[in-house]
Design a protein around this nucleic acid. Sequence first.
DNA 1: CAAATTATTTACACTCATTATACAATTGCA
DNA 2: TGCAATTGTATAATGAGTGTAAATAATTTG
Lengths: 309, 309
Amino acid sequence: MRSIVYSIKQVVEMLDIPSVTLRAWENRYQAVVPERTESGYRLYNQENIEDLRWLKEQTDKQGISISHAVRMLKQHKQKDLDERLSVAGGDPKDALDKMRQQIYAALLDIQGERADALIDFGFSLYGYEAMVHQVLVPVLVKVGDAWEQGTATVAQEHYMTHMISNRLSQFFHVFPVYAHLHKVLAFCPAGEHHQVGLLLFSLFLRRNGVEVIYLGANTPEDGVMELLEKQERIGAVCLSVTNGTLVPYTEELLERLGSLYPEMQLIVGGRAYEAISLQDTNATYVMAEPPEKWQAWFDQEYATIRHRA
Amino acid sequence: MRSIVYSIKQVVEMLDIPSVTLRAWENRYQAVVPERTESGYRLYNQENIEDLRWLKEQTDKQGISISHAVRMLKQHKQKDLDERLSVAGGDPKDALDKMRQQIYAALLDIQGERADALIDFGFSLYGYEAMVHQVLVPVLVKVGDAWEQGTATVAQEHYMTHMISNRLSQFFHVFPVYAHLHKVLAFCPAGEHHQVGLLLFSLFLRRNGVEVIYLGANTPEDGVMELLEKQERIGAVCLSVTNGTLVPYTEELLERLGSLYPEMQLIVGGRAYEAISLQDTNATYVMAEPPEKWQAWFDQEYATIRHRA
DNA sequence: CAAATTATTTACACTCATTATACAATTGCA
DNA sequence: TGCAATTGTATAATGAGTGTAAATAATTTG
């Protein structure tokens, strides 16, 4: 690869553009951003020259304004895509890490457009599994941590959580349902408004072919009961609780459910159940971290349930 | 991939239509509505050019008046949609009505698979506008009504609301953002957990090219304030309140916002504000039914806001 | 070291685009 | 015909885009 570089004076002579103008174009529009020497002198490479020549052509002969010419140039070169593609180069591990960081940074900065573009790009590049489990979920966890540690404001947490869970829940309806599996009823009990954990676990089940009836946050008990009576083939109820004070009520609820439907799997999770083991609850499975263990549970405990008559 | 865009000067030269006329056509008939740069300069894309060329052809050579030509153009474009509609056979009105009923029935019956399939099918057949405004939103309204009247259980309401608002929020990131418009901050105040109205209005704004920072339900005040300080170019705050007891607090919040940011548009909506008129609130716009009126408000009150220094 | 080159910052005309309003000329229609 | 709506254009005020210049400081070169 050729690496001839030119000083600004050489460029001025080659292209007949005053140095003042070159600098103005760079500062104002990032039209052409040359490398610099250690002391800050500009070093234009061949590509820079070509770009500048093209820009001059547009402005001089076509009468196009410089700002517009730069817009066209950038579009033409698909600069944006190139930047994002550079994420893909190198080690895939680094790439995913970089993607995590960039998405997190974009969200922290409330740059929805950019975050969406990054996520779209990530899906096209890495597919569902890698993107969800190695990028979006970690970002979501990081958001929660940042909030707890005060690194992010409440509004930032809300925004980031919404953006990501929105993207995640898109996948709810794209996976096939395996009809031989029992359905799962997922909800947070009345008073509980935090549904991220529930969403993640529901998505995990959905990915495994389970039809999930997702009721979301703050669902009163009577509604659930009616639904269980009407619907057949519900094999599990999945609850997520963050608010610790709701645990006693949740346990009562679990007990009622267990006595009404003895064959039903009762799954609990969420912050409030993080430190609670199976012995201390009426549930039949506690979905704690890490999500990798979920698969083992699913394969052994859920996928094997046969139909009831 | 984005298409090439042209400045107004280029369009003038290409089509030989004075810029003054181009602007008049846009203002008077919305003949061709180009995107804008961040500073509000018009950016015409290829489709805009084609439309303008066609309009000029009609007016110059065919002697047709511009208003009539625009009507024809819009009719012409509508025809594409109609053709897609008629693919389904029969009267499109009946078809949409049938789709509403089927989707509602599927949701009421907790048949997520079927509802999703119907919705997918509907989008592919009728496109975004028809599907959202004539099917999903009406279904959502019907769900709310059914819940109030006791025709649906709480669980059914939760489920249906979740399914539909999930599908709706997918569109959040597919529409282009017009950078010259101010952003909108959308949230429900602390204590308010019902965000359907907020979602619909946010989606409406998003559809009109506004970047919406969506914080969702139950957002505490301090987070919002921090965000407003940090973010620039937020032109409006949008609040939705269902719980009537929160109105006094909301009004206080609005007053604080109004005194801190006198230029900010303050939009309120939701059940709690249904019967409240502009005189009785500190807000600058009440987003009440019907959504058709939103467009008039937007065109007059929001799309025309200029930049602050 | 002195001269030449380059960099940053600030400023200033000058052009161009924006909105809003106004105003004839034309058109449509009762 | 007469009158109001339509329509292309003109103008004014404001702000953004753009080339260039000056002041000042740092670096390179002979």
